[in-house]
Design a protein around this nucleic acid. Structure first.
Lengths: 120, 120
DNA sequence: CTAAAACCTCACGTTGACGTCAGAGGCAAG
DNA sequence: CTTGCCTCTGACGTCAACGTGAGGTTTTAG
């Protein structure tokens, strides 16, 4: 499949896909005329990349970790890296829960017709 | 208190505090010579701002919502805004959990000495 | 009184993940 | 064959939340 098809299937922009390749996250073969060609596995690959981005990992970090996924082997260093990223995500989840609850408090407080509480 | 004290207490840089003021998030009185002065309430104010930032709200959004917090009153629009931000945070939490589990899967997979599973 | 530390206002620099435009070539349809 | 969409490679633009220095004033410690 060509880059436009992959973009459609993954709902990721063509520019982003080229960027992923530039960062070493996504490989492609090339047609004779130089156009990028992808196999079906690329769809899941892009989804994985997106998930890791949304988890706050940088291109560089993802680039270091994807080889482990491909080889299904991790060195002690990369294992530590993975674990530390997971911990960071857990921390972030906890922060988000706090912020969400805080937001709910604000909603409750400002929705009440009788504001007699002290907040902040 | 002066800006340096507030920075110390909140562990936020002086530059960031000035930036918050620039964005209309944090008010200050000024001494005769022009230095910023803050009351004790500013500490909690900054904490709140930080929490909202860490929840992914932009300066602009925070600037729109803080008056509601101060007035303890929300308009229907701002209530909707608050709720939609809360929903966004909930979505993000769900995504993070997925990503974290995915990361755990990767850790498990790459740590296993016998890689015979298919992943990705 | 003096020197260090803290504060002020510009105003440009940084970073990451792309967006966007330019200029040029490639490909299926009529 | 040509029209129109897709793709290519640069390469500059963007945006947010500050960082960082310049150049100058103010406050504080000794």
């Amino acid at each position: 499949m060509r880059i436009g098809d992959l973009a459609t299937q993954t709902r990721v922009s063509v520019r982003a896909l080229r960027y992923y390749e530039e960062q070493g996250l996504l490989a492609s073969t090339r047609s004779e005329s130089g156009q990028r060609l992808y196999g079906n596995a690329a769809v899941n690959r892009v989804r994985l990349i997106q998930q890791l981005y949304s988890a706050g990992l940088s291109s560089k970090t993802i680039a270091e970790l994807l080889p482990c996924v491909d080889a299904k082997v991790s060195t002690p260093e990369s294992r530590e890296r993975l674990a530390s990223e997971r911990d960071r995500i857990n921390t972030q989840i906890a922060e988000l829960i706090i912020a969400r609850d805080r937001l709910n408090d604000i909603i409750d407080m400002t929705s009440r017709p009788n504001p007699e509480c002290d907040y902040v």
